[in-house]
């Protein structure tokens, strides 16, 4: 049966984020990023442009990468969502996160969450990427601080690939 919600409906949305069950309320038009941040209080996902270019808000949604600014919270009913908060155990960093730090892959860190999510997904898909492939993947994100060089090096170091 079709799910149907009126424009001003306050919709209960149940989803699983980083393996934990969450429930919150959203209107049909509520952006998923706003729902994650201001309803579920998962502030690690950042919002940089709200039109799908900068990539800061990238998450995984049912096994795909999604720009959470252009996905609506009601679309996440029953979904499995992955955000930066789920990448490592509290108080620890995973090898990719450590590599980002070691290689100077972040400065202000605002774009970083989305890039880590993309990269994690990408490396599962393509475990031994070339530098060109890494750069093409990263081109779906904007970073204004680093010039991307550290990110490329960090990702290649974790992938065990190289030029």
């Amino acid at each position: 049966m079709s799910a149907k919600f009126e424009a001003d409906a306050r919709v209960r949305v149940n989803c699983t984020v980083n393996g934990k069950r969450h429930t919150g309320y959203a209107e049909p038009r509520t952006q998923l990023c706003d729902f994650l941040r201001h309803e579920l209080h998962l502030y690690g996902t950042h919002v940089g442009c709200e039109h799908g270019v900068c990539g800061a808000c990238t998450i995984t949604l049912d096994g795909r990468l999604a720009r959470s600014c252009m996905t609506y919270a009601v679309q996440a009913e029953g979904a499995e969502i992955g955000t930066v908060e789920g990448l490592s155990e509290p108080g620890t960093l995973n090898p990719l996160q450590r590599a980002f730090s070691d290689h100077g892959a972040l400065q202000c860190g605002f774009c970083t969450a989305g890039i880590l999510i993309s990269t994690t997904y990408f490396l599962a898909d393509n475990p031994m990427p070339s530098e060109q492939e890494v750069r093409e993947m990263l081109s779906g994100h904007l970073c204004r601080c680093t010039g991307y060089e550290g990110m490329v090096r960090a990702i290649l170091s974790v992938a065990g690939g190289g030029s």
């Binding site: 049966m1 799910a3 919709v11 049909p28 952006q31 009601v74």
Partner: peptide
């Protein structure tokens, strides 16, 4: 940069989608 209000229908079959359309 937030969308204007809209109602939302999520069909589970193509027939439901065509009926909504």
């Amino acid at each position: 940069m937030k969308p204007a209000s809209f109602a939302y229908i999520r069909p589970e079959t193509q027939d439901e989608a065509l009926s909504a359309l």
